[in-house]
Each structure stands twice: as C-alpha cells, then as structure tokens.
Design a protein around this nucleic acid. Structure first.
Lengths: 181, 181
DNA sequence: GTGCCCATGTAATCTGTTACATGATTAG
DNA sequence: CTAATCATGTAACAGATTACATGGGCAC
C-alpha cells in the first residue's frame, strides 16, 4: 500500500464500481462486464484490467477476499479506503461535468467543409442508422437493471440529440440550396 | 511517405481538420486551437501534436508549404491524399455513431449505489452547475463561426439532456422517499 | 536588454491496445 | 477426451501527458 493518488482514472473508477456492485468478483469477471457492455468505452483488455487491479490493490483500494476454491482464483472487494475513493470519484463535479470525447461532436465541427450535396447524403444516411440503433437500445431498455438502465437512457437521449441536430442541419442545407437557385 | 494507415485517430482527424480550415498554418497554431477550445477533449500538448504532425507528413497526408519567413517556421497544408483521408474520417459512419467517452454517463451507471439523501444533494448541486455552464455556452454561441457553433450546439444539447436526466432521477428519489415513509 | 509570445522539439512516464502464453475446470 | 470457458498474466507497441530545453522576433 503506497500513498493514495489524488484521482482515479475513468477506467479505475468504473472498475471499482463493478467490484462494488458485485463483491468478491474476479478480475476476469470485471473484464467480462466491460467486454459485454454495449457502450464500447473500454475493451476490457487483459493488458488494462490486470495491471489496474494490481495497482488498486497495491494502493489499498481493493483487497483480496479469503480464497474460496482450491485453485489460484483471486476475488476482490473494496476496502474502506476504496469505498471512500470511489465515492469521491462518483461525486467529483469537475469530472462529471466534462463533455468527454464524442466522435460525432468532434466531426460536427468539420462537416461543413464538405460539399453540401455530399454532406446532405451522408447526414441523412447517418440519421437512418442512428434511428436503428436508438430503437434497438429502446427495445432492450426494459430488461436492464438500475445502473445499466440509467446509462442506456442517457445513450438513447444522446441519439435523439444527434437526430435533432441532423434534422436541423439537413433543413438548413435544403434552405441554402433553395436560396442559391 | 510510407504506406497509408487504414484509419486516423480522433486527434489526427481533428488536426487535419484544423489544417484544412486554415491552410499554411503551423503546428504551433494547431496546438493553440486545441488549447483554446472550450471542450477539453485534447490538451493540445506539444508531446502529442508535434509527433502527430510528423506522422501525418511522413504518411503524405500533409505537406510543408514553401517557407515564408526567414526562420525555421514550418507551415503545412493538406495533400490530395490528406484531403481524401480526412473526407473518409469525416464520413465514417461507424466512428461517427460511437457513443464516445462521457464521464457523466460512466458515473450514471453507479450513482445509485450512494445513499439516496447524498445522491439527491449531489445531483441537485450538479444540476445547478450544469445550468450555469449551459448558459455560458448559450451566451457565447452567437459569436462563434460555423464549426464551433455546430459543436457548441451539441454541447448545449448534451447539458440539457443531463439536466432532464437529473430532474427525472431527483423526482424518482423524492417519490421513493415518500413511499418509504 | 528584458520579458513575452511564437515555434519546435525531446524525455520520462502513464495507460491503454492487441496478441500471445499458460493452466485449471467443466460440459458434452 | 476434447473443446469451451474460467482465470491470470506478460510483451510489444501506440498514443497521450507533463515537464523540460531551446531559440528567434518584437514591444517597451
């Protein structure tokens, strides 16, 4: 147990959350959760998870539960320090307020460099795909539990936001074309 | 000029976009744009930008413009290959569709582990801060040009989405408290 | 001439990715 | 027995961060 860091990374915070929700779970189990998560924020790669678990243990935020089965399987739970750290991560307004990284938003700042016709075609096609995804999400929403449902709701909202934005841009493109002629 | 890669990173795409919008700009200028951007997606750190510029040049996506001033200042513009690559990056539906990394959304999946009272306090406080930011953004929106305005609009929409979500959660928390008593 | 901005870069470090390697347990 | 899944890890590599180092030009 070395000195605790000031802040957890997003991955570490999420990992602590998984262990918190499912005490005595293995590192492997944490991986599965990320692997299965439809939001592809992290790949849950072994090369990220195992080193992170070791970091968190060295820093005293998680601890090994007494061994259950005969083989080397290690299961973890949050230590009191880990609980405090995770609460801090959850309730850090500066982090929570951040806009994050949105590939749609990033591109939106540059799309207008494209020729209007091409942009129109692309955006309408993209809109169709977004609708499809949105409906998929909406369909699986009822089967999700608290946490996943909360995230999925925000996910759907994001897709709606993008759809609205696209509709507005497409309308503007149409108007510009009318004006030009 | 080595063989071109299949895909550009988000940072590289954004950098190509900056150079595309402002031909014959310096690497330093690209840094300033990221440094000044209110969305803190990238820090525009020297250790990221200069190596990326070199990568893009080696791969033939940007080229040095003939030197203008006497000193070593290098300015860049997109090559035809760079233009094609950037168009591909802009119009890649798989990338554009991604949910990205949203610290709010990540936390939303875990917030419900907190005691209801603490969660209520935190969410209402967070809501206030989001409103403040939203209004700031809204105020500077009219002064922005095309690309920045497009991004800022999405930014505002994201804050609105979060506010709605928070309002819904807070209402549910109040109802739960009423039910429990 | 002093301090500030323009401009370019490197080094150490951190964290993530893919791909590989290994072995135990269980279901058919 | 054998294939899949559980389980743990490492190695090579990629990309970003901070901090440092350097130097030219310009305003006061």
């Amino acid at each position: 147990m070395t000195k605790p860091r000031a802040t957890l990374t997003e991955l570490e915070g999420a990992m602590l959350g998984v262990v918190r929700l499912e005490p005595n779970c293995t590192a492997y189990r944490v991986r599965q959760v990320f692997l299965a998560s439809r939001s592809t924020e992290w790949s849950g790669s072994a090369g990220a998870v195992y080193p992170a678990v070791n970091r968190l243990q060295v820093e005293g935020l998680i601890g090994e539960s007494p061994e259950q089965d005969g083989r080397g399987t290690k299961t973890y739970r949050l230590t009191p320090a880990g609980l405090t750290a995770h609460d801090g991560w959850l309730c850090d307004p500066d982090r929570a307020l951040g806009a994050g990284l949105d590939p749609f938003r990033t591109r939106a700042g540059f799309w207008f460099v494209l020729p209007p016709k091409r942009l129109h075609t692309f955006l309408t096609g993209l809109g169709k795909q977004i609708e499809t995804r949105r409906d998929e999400l909406l369909r699986e929403l009822p089967s999700l539990d608290d946490g996943d449902a909360a995230m999925a709701t925000l996910h759907v909202g994001l897709q709606d936001l993008r759809l609205d934005w696209i509709a507005k841009q497409v309308k503007k493109l149409a108007k510009d074309r009318a004006t030009r002629s």
